[in-house]
Amino acid sequence: MNFKKMAAAFLTGACMLTAIGCGGGGGGEKPKDAKAEQSLKGKEVVLYVSFHEDTTKELAKGFKEKTGCEVKFIRLPTGEAVARLIAEKDAPKADVWLGGTIDAHEKMKAEGITTKYTSPDEKNLPAAYVDKDGFWKGTYLETLAIGVNEARFNKEFKGKVEMPTKLEDLLNPAFKGEIIMPDPAKSGTGSTFLTSVVQCMGEEKGLELLKGIKANVAQLTPSGFTPAQKCGAGEFLITVNFLSDQMNVSNKGQKIISTVFPNAGWTLCGVSKLKGAPHDAAANAFIDYMMSKEAGDAMVKTANGIACNPKSITPAGSKPLNELPLYKDYDFAKAGKEKDALTAKFAGL
């Protein structure tokens, strides 16, 4: 039985209930006119994209201006893209898979679906954000953060408790019933949180901390995005999820104060070339383009992500990449292997 293909159909639901790691909203501004080479005029490139629509359109426009190449794309949430790529393994319909979390890109690499491509521009990126074996490259980074509803904090908590800035602060009994976060068993954001805490602190201490936090958590949601939205609405004071989701809510008017806590877990949204890509040259050019400053800027503006290219602008309200207190040694492959066992342990806490 073909589970993978079947999964494709399920994941439509997933795309709405489980916020995809690499997605964003926000308004799009026009990118600066790049110096046009137009070397690929009349050619086309086909993408499967796990970004939001407006980010994708912005990138497609930028690439066309730069190279003259037409961009065709189908938007698929991470899980569904995986399912479709596996189903089409023998005769790929697309050239590049853009977006989707790195654990999924690792999986595609292991399945032999993506192929090696060394971009001349990947030197623009810190080495940690490029696959050592040359398969995937990072485009932007999602980091976990503690978000606090500003209006509610000022009204109800100011003077009584400090603004929480690290995970240990969340153990404060004053926050009991006021924290909302995604369920690690059901959301990629949640599992990133769980695995990064455990990797960083060691299993015993990590689970001990999470047990304390869980006692204060009012709701574990199936979607990674919901906590930001409900924190913004003031239903809950504190959210722990991806910074970009918090900023998307905050920028729409419901102010959330986000703090990237020390040793915060993170994930990358990657880009990979597909083995047997029908349009080889255009695929390479597109991946080169994704390493550029302009592409990074477009992603920052439309998705509030933190571009892997350090020259790109930083999202308003966030620090530059090298100043964020991220957990540098986070190991995606290890996290993927440990995920199931850890989520079971977390459920039992």
Binding site: A9, T12, G13, M16, L17, R75, S223, A233
Partner: peptide, 22 residues
């Protein structure tokens, strides 16, 4: 809920998922 696809989304599902995300 299991039968829809990106091209064929339905309004009832939309109401639920929008509400669920807040």
């Amino acid at each position: 809920i299991f039968l829809i696809s990106p091209e064929w989304n339905l309004a009832s599902i939309n109401i639920m998922s929008l509400a669920n995300q807040g």
